[in-house]
Nucleic acid binder design. Structure first.
Lengths: 200, 200
DNA sequence: ATTGTTTTGTACATACGTGTACAAAAAAAG
DNA sequence: CTTTTTTTGTACACGTATGTACAAAACAAT
């Protein structure tokens, strides 16, 4: 499984470098960052960057994957088989509030930030992000189904609509968290949302 | 009032040029568009562009202002004194669905698109957009107050939270409309939101 | 030690970006 | 008709962007 790699080894830590790129994209945006800047803060040469990641877009895709893996939504994607859905959902929203405030200043969600930026100027990235969005809706729909099965909530008339609403809320929440910098206020917003949509 | 302008007159129609720029920014994003491209599609020289708008940022600000003036939210900003709030709100959401689908493809809301792009890379624009966001929350808060006064709804426990929720929903809705391209589905989403938040 | 493979450093090519300078052109004001 | 004011066209300056080429370096395999 673990590929033995022949040839000269990388001088840098790939994971660490991607993590630095992730944070840079997160704070400055996709277009505002140049390959030069990226290589510089990652502590490698442009040559290494192109050799290891292909181009800026390739690097961004890896950074985005790393972002997702470490995002609060991973909590829900890897929900244990015996867990309750509603408490997990609440913990997820709670964690969202916490991390949105804790970040180094108005970063929001990397995926959401990128939507408006790439749609219309990079079809490849746009497609990837659209797929992630649809995937998010699907995830919430499955969780709602599961919550019904586990007798946590009564069956809603349209699970798909609620799943879409949650996704929309989270995206708007990401944007709003860049302006409202008060965790209690954000959490209040989430609680009200969950209550109004019968998810408590 | 109407300034008489001395000197050589503009060869181009300022309003029309701004409108073209508005649509270009809307479709391609802020950073992905260059001054060269802008001047080209506006049908003027870069020289005229710099002379008339200062720079790219200045042009964008004017384009954004034009966008707002023509946006559905103008319906609510200029609501007649004798009008009911709730029907106007519903009409506003309805119009949002219509225009989001009618646009030339996944454009979303220009303001929302710009949030993630400029925060962290252009403090000036970011500040302007943040102010618009806060203004939006304020507008909805006032409308809720007014709806209470006009006996359309009972007083909610936290009007500010609801106003924030509406703003967040609209932003997420903008992003979602770039992926869900079905007006009925979008309208369904809006109706459910309004119902759950007691705005019907 | 030799060979094969991959990374790294340096340099290059080339296009594009923003912004400015300045004279010519086009109008109004006197 | 001359002066004043503003726009327009053209050119320039200069930095930055992306991507590539290629030799030197560093490792594994044999």
């Amino acid at each position: 499984m673990a590929q033995v790699k022949v040839g000269r080894p990388n001088k840098f830590d790939r994971e660490a470098a991607i993590d630095i790129a992730k944070n840079a994209f997160w704070m400055q945006g996709y277009h505002a960052l140049s390959v030069n800047q990226l290589a510089s803060i990652m502590g490698i040469t442009r040559s290494s960057l192109y050799n290891s990641f292909g181009d800026k877009q390739g690097l961004f895709k890896e950074a985005l994957a790393a972002y997702n893996a470490a995002s609060p939504i991973a909590l829900l994607q890897n929900l244990p088989a015996d867990a309750q859905v509603i408490p997990a959902l609440q913990a997820f929203f709670r964690e969202n509030c916490r991390s949105r405030i804790q970040d180094q200043g108005k970063q929001g969600c990397l995926m959401v930030n990128t939507i408006g930026e790439v749609i219309g100027s990079d079809d490849d990235l746009a497609g990837e992000i659209e797929a992630m969005l649809l995937q998010s809706i699907e995830l919430f729909e499955q969780l709602i189904e599961r919550a019904v099965t586990q007798n946590e909530i009564t069956r809603p008339c349209d699970a798909h609509a609620i799943a879409s609403a949650i996704t929309a809320f989270l995206m708007g929440f990401s944007n709003l968290s860049q302006v409202i910098r008060d965790e209690q206020q954000l959490w209040n917003l989430c609680q009200t949302f969950l209550k109004n949509y019968g998810l408590e």
